[in-house]
Amino acid sequence: MNPLCMTRWSPYIVGTLLGMLIWFTFGVAHKALGVSTNFSQAILWAEKAIVPEHAKEVPYFADYKIPTAIGWEAAIFVGLILGAFVSAQLSGDRDAEQLPELWVRRFGPSRWKAYGLAFLGGAILMYGARLAGGCTSGHGISGTLQLAVSSWAFFLSLFASGVASAFILFRKGA
């Protein structure tokens, strides 16, 4: 079978190729791979358009060196959607159109509850990511592999907190 049409690849293969992708971003594009800066950049642009005076007074953008030029990160954002779309089309994977089975067993079948809690989860994690200066890609992969102290501190605390949260949230089994 053509590997491109498989639903799943081994995590070791995927991890190796991801590592090699990072060689490419560092060696050719001279950039690290990150996703969450996009979100701060979107807020910066929105504030500049709507409340330009206020945007200048927000210390976060300067403290965290949020880039004003749109390019690398936004292109990754678009590429991510296209790449996953092509992969799912090739394998005919339509899993994601339903609510996950595990979710329904734990939280019930309500779609609006699922979207509401997903919204809340997204807000919480992005608050944390922007405070820490990166997410699972910028810190979790790009940063840890450069052996950055900040990234290992983030990665280990995210993992510990995730395990604790999962055990609390799913303590009744599900």
């Binding site: 919480i124 944390g128 820490a132 997410c135 990665f155 907190s161 949260s165």
Partner: peptide, 19 residues
């Protein structure tokens, strides 16, 4: 970095995805 990571972990379990 550490407080951000702790907060991130909670949200990531709730959403089941990262950015």
């Amino acid at each position: 970095n550490i407080v951000g990571g702790l907060i991130f972990g909670v949200g990531m379990v709730l959403l089941g995805l990262c950015p």
